[in-house]
Design a protein around this nucleic acid. Structure first.
Lengths: 348, 348
DNA sequence: CTTCTGATTGCATTCGAATGCAATCTATGA
DNA sequence: TCATAGATTGCATTCGAATGCAATCAGAAG
């Protein structure tokens, strides 16, 4: 028997073309459908048949062709992940978790990065042809885009984005609650003179953080907090502090930053350009809880987003929607976890 | 005419099933092959036909099914990107560039992240079924793995990895040259007492950096440099410095770190735990040139990898191999770019 | 030993686009 | 006006796996 199979094996390997179920079938002396069934869990196959087919498959190095399978089953087992700026330190972490969880669930990830938020139109044109089973989007999509998902029956889950006007499933960190925790702790510690360094005006999350901060400050009777900034970069934090100080009126007590990297930029500007050291002279807080937040030079007080639980939720929501398209839309909001460091005088 | 097309349109949109080329053909009153040809650049189609088909396609919202196309053309237009640890700050940057360039080249990216380097076996099993046109791997693969790529005729390009024993195309940054530049500059600036904080022993690049450093030091007549460390983390840098100082013998003049994040950890340990501030009391250099390297608190002297050019090279090499499978294997090595900061006394 | 039932197996078709080939059309020149 | 070459178009088949249906088989019961 080995004598008969050896030549086949060599032929198939050197032929260069990938091995198909027909090759395996011929080699095992059974029908193609039998081979197919052996690779489908729960199909009706006798033990003997399975052993025979698996042996042949093994010998030829057969792997079912996912492309062909997708065509007939209308299930690609692919999901698209859209991420707007991988350069934001927060997202690599999210992406790593997402792909990990998707792999565990037997789903492959097609990655799309948008350099400009506006690029969504073009990117979606690249997504549709692959008939992905679903999409996780951490990028700004318009209601029109969402409508197209509906029309095409492609499940969509937003990650840290959402649209007020449309019902879409989403996973978010509770920005408002997080900002509140930060401000309250700063207030309790005695700070009264606040400043805000905001993120990009086209980021819902960024705007929400800013708005929540202003609201909470107002509730506490503080209405004159200056608002600067325009993106999520280190430079934004750094330059905004310089502007703030140049404006006169002395340094603030506490600065609320759009995210950790901005806070890090702000801390550096205070120390390097103005000789103000946290937490003695100034308090700075961030948001996200990225790796560098815990570096000793910064040791940020921040709100850590529960990335593991959030990605877990996003993936399982998406998979559920894929299984059951009528699944009602759901918005899951997770509370951030306060981390106190030496970047701020803070009272819990 | 509009009166006749309207109903079709509604039906096709509400039917839920994706629009196929047959739908478009029927709607335009032509054959399916005509529709197919209209979407293939360079095919023989009259202007009139193209206009008619495109109009129908537009109306129905037709997008060619990439899955079906892949099946018949034996080209998936997919490439797999394998990355071992997205948590290493260097890789998100690489990944962003890679996907950008692939998109530009009309190729989609299937992302696979390996949590453990050893996971390659399992991950490759997930890669094969999708019949990807090629793979870019920034993960450790064994010669056996590479052999499987050969057997399956799947083009492979290593990114910052390579195997000495096997001929595989790869793109690398010249580690040896970079380390030399760093050490020579430190030496010229008067440093004689060196220490090395190495990366993970299973990372080719990490080992190469360490070895190159030891070699160069030896050439300069320095043979007693201690070697510590075991991974690419901040903690590794931080703890290694503490160990180094605990060992007695006083602080070194200069520390060569496995990468920027390790250098950052080292700087923090020196300053926080031992009151040594760079560049006055100590010199620390990193490698990679990641974003945080330029943050004012660290301002690293480091070797910046030309990520744009390297990713560009990786993608174009892979695409060339896909077009022309007999393309000879090639190893492209880029020189890193020296960045001098205030983390070290340094003489160019 | 026969009959019947449930489990296996194979046959034939399907998914949606691409493409070789033959049929048809167009435009050109005689 | 007619023949002819070149451009278009449609027909029929193909890619590789999944699956409904019918045929076959094994084992249990009579």
């Amino acid at each position: 028997m080995a004598g008969r199979t050896r030549p086949d094996k060599v032929v198939s390997i050197t032929s260069g073309r990938p091995v198909t179920s027909y090759d395996v079938a011929r080699h095992a002396g059974v029908s193609q459908s039998a081979v197919s069934r052996c690779f489908k869990p729960g199909a009706s196959v006798s033990k003997k048949m399975r052993a025979r087919v698996m042996a042949a498959a093994e010998e030829l190095g057969y792997q079912p062709n996912a492309i062909a399978r997708s065509l007939i089953t209308r299930r690609s087992n692919l999901i698209a992940v859209l991420i707007s700026n991988l350069t934001n330190l927060y997202y690599p972490e999210v992406l790593a978790e997402l792909t990990q969880r998707c792999s565990a669930a037997g789903v492959r990830v097609l990655l799309f990065t948008l350099s400009r938020e506006a690029e969504a139109d073009e990117v979606l044109q690249l997504v549709w042809p692959y008939r992905v089973d679903g999409v996780i989007a951490s990028a700004q999509l318009s209601p029109a885009h969402v409508a197209e998902f509906e029309k095409r029956n492609v499940p969509l889950v937003f990650y840290n984005r959402y649209l007020n006007s449309v019902s879409v499933s989403s996973v978010c960190c509770d920005q408002e609650d997080g900002v509140r925790q930060l401000i309250d702790g700063l207030y309790k510690a005695g700070h009264r003179k606040f400043a805000i360094i905001a993120g990009p005006p086209d980021s819902v999350v960024g705007v929400e953080r800013k708005t929540a901060a202003l609201e909470r400050l107002e509730e506490l009777g503080i209405e004159d907090a200056p608002v600067l900034g325009e993106d999520y970069s280190y430079e934004n934090g750094f330059n905004s502090v310089n502007e703030l100080m140049a404006a006169g009126g002395g340094p603030p007590d506490a600065v609320i930053c759009a995210n950790d990297v901005v806070a890090i930029g702000a801390l550096d500007a205070f120390r390097v350009n103005h000789g103000l050291v946290a937490p003695r002279d100034i308090s700075v807080v961030g948001f996200d809880g990225v790796g560098p937040a815990t570096w000793k030079s910064y040791d940020l007080t921040t709100i850590r987003q529960p990335v593991r639980r959030m990605t877990e939720a996003a993936v399982s929501m998406l998979l559920a929607m894929i299984e059951e398209p009528e699944m009602p839309r759901e918005r899951r909001v997770f509370s951030g976890i306060l981390r106190t460091g030496s970047s701020a005088k803070f009272a819990e």
